[in-house]
Every structure is written in structure tokens, then in C-alpha cells.
């Protein structure tokens, strides 16, 4: 099959960028989107041109590296899938696809499709952990957790930190990401001792990184490859307010 690609090319962080046109022919519809990018880069390298910089790692939908917007859609047109899980059969033969990096002030473009997502790391460092003494792994099921709670925590823990929520949000807000991380630990007994300071510190780190604020339009939920629910944002809002209530 044939595809026309308009790809964002930007040589470096403070350089201007622009969309460049590439035509690819003879593509296999069962190729993944990233395999198509490999084909393109292979051709560019052979032509002595600079290949397109893009991030990728596991290529099975669990690492969250393959950040790119296809036709303005973070991770492309499929529901609940990352870019690496998008196959060319999802597109029409001869279609024109615009491929751009995540767009948000907190995720500056480093090169082509690669953005600096270290703001997420700073949020995690602020409170996305539990403090435990190291040693042997505890026995499985030593701490009983209700089925419902375990499921809810697991749903939140699905977040792979890819940043699609920020990329889709018209305000560049990271509230779905932060809500997922706050909820996943806040729902479990291991997360209770640091629950209040966690939500406060993570929200403060989120604000400091220059993300926007949720205006309740739920684009994040619609594009999330792990289908994290925006209801978790409500939970975070509640948790945050409760964290400010003085202990009686």
C-alpha cells in the first residue's frame, strides 16, 4: 500500500521546525506504524539524509515510549492502543497522514518527534512511591486487599506514563497522569502512610512543571492507550482537598 506522510522535522530544541512530505510505496498493511517509520528511516539513511528521530522501546504497548500524534490524535486512531500497536491496515491506501510530536509547553520538542517528558519523572520523584525498608519481597497475599479495591488500584496502575493525556488536552494538563499515580498508591494499604503528602507534593510538582489545568473535557480519557478513567481526576481532587484538612 501507499501512504503520504507529512512529518514534523525539527533539528533541535531551539530550532524552528516544519512539516515535510514523504511518499512511501509498497508498504505491507500488516506492518506496524513504527515498522513503517523504520522503512522510511532506512530509505532516508541510504539516501544520505537525516533519519526521523522518534522514541520507541518495547513495541508491545507497555513502555509508553512511542509518543507521536497521527492526524492530531495521540497514538493514532485506534482505541486503547499505543502507536506501536497501530497497524497500517487502519489507514486507507493512498491516505495522507500528518505525524507530529506531543504538543505541550511542559513537553518541549528535542528533535523531530522526540519531546522531553522528564516533567513526568519530576512528578513521580515528588511522591509517586511508597517508602519501605528494602529486604526480601513480602509473601504474596500477606496483606489482604479487597477484590474491588485491588481492581481499582490495578486499573489506575495501568498508566504507562506516555503523556498522551497531556498531548490531547487543549490545556496541556497532566491531571489524568497525576490522578492515576495518586490513586494507584492511595487505594492500597501500602500507600496510606504517605497518602496526604503524596497528593500535595505531586500536585505541586505538576503545577511547577508548567502543565495546564483540567477543564473537564475528558479528551485525556478518550485517547489514553490504557483507557484510564477521568473519574480518577475527581478522586484526586477529593484526595487533595482532604489532605489539607487538619488532623483532629
Amino acid at each position: 500500500m501507499k501512504l503520504h506522510l507529512k512529518i514534523w522535522r525539527q533539528p533541535g530544541k531551539d530550532h524552528p521546525g516544519k512539516l515535510e512530505m514523504y511518499d512511501l510505496d509498497g508498504l505491507n498493511p500488516d506492518m506496524s506504524f513504527l515498522e513503517m517509520m523504520d522503512v522510511l528511516n532506512d530509505r532516508l539513511t541510504r539516501e544520505g539524509k537525516e533519519p526521523v528521530a522518534f522514541e520507541h522501546d518495547c513495541r508491545e504497548g507497555i513502555c509508553g515510549s512511542c509518543a507521536m500524534a497521527i492526524n492530531g490524535e495521540p497514538h493514532g486512531p485506534n482505541d486503547g492502543a499505543t502507536t506501536c500497536q497501530v497497524y497500517l491496515r487502519s489507514f486507507k491506501d493512498g491516505e495522507t497522514l500528518t505525524v507530529e510530536p506531543w504538543r505541550a509547553r511542559a513537553f518541549p520538542v528535542l528533535k523531530d518527534l522526540v519531546t522531553d517528558r522528564s516533567a513526568f519523572d519530576r512528578i513521580m520523584q515528588a511522591g509517586g512511591f511508597i517508602s519501605v525498608n528494602t529486604g526480601q519481597a513480602p509473601d504474596a497475599n500477606a496483606m489482604p486487599i479487597g477484590k474491588e479495591t485491588a481492581e481499582q488500584a490495578f486499573d489506575a496502575a495501568h498508566c504507562i506514563g506516555c503523556g498522551a493525556c497531556v498531548a490531547a488536552c487543549r490545556n496541556g494538563s497532566a491531571m489524568l497522569f497525576v490522578a492515576a499515580k495518586v490513586s494507584h498508591l492511595g487505594l492500597l494499604p501500602q500507600g496510606q502512610p504517605e497518602r496526604k503528602q503524596r497528593v500535595r507534593r505531586m500536585v505541586e510538582a505538576m503545577d511547577a512543571a508548567g502543565f495546564g489545568n483540567c477543564s473537564n473535557q475528558y479528551a485525556c480519557e478518550a485517547v489514553c492507550p490504557k483507557e484510564i478513567s477521568a473519574d480518577l481526576i475527581a478522586r484526586m481532587n477529593r484526595d487533595y482537598a482532604l489532605s489539607l484538612v487538619p488532623k483532629l
Binding site: 500524534a69 492526524n71 507530529e100 504538543r103 487543549r170 480519557e221 478518550a222 485517547v223
Partner: peptide, 12 residues
């Protein structure tokens, strides 16, 4: 984005 995404505008 140069092209507006469909899913991103579903609930907007």
C-alpha cells in the same frame, strides 16, 4: 496540531 484529532474532541 496541524490536523485536529477526532478522539481528542469527542467530549469537547
Amino acid at each position: 496540531y496541524a490536523v485536529a484529532g477526532r478522539k481528542s474532541r469527542l467530549h469537547v
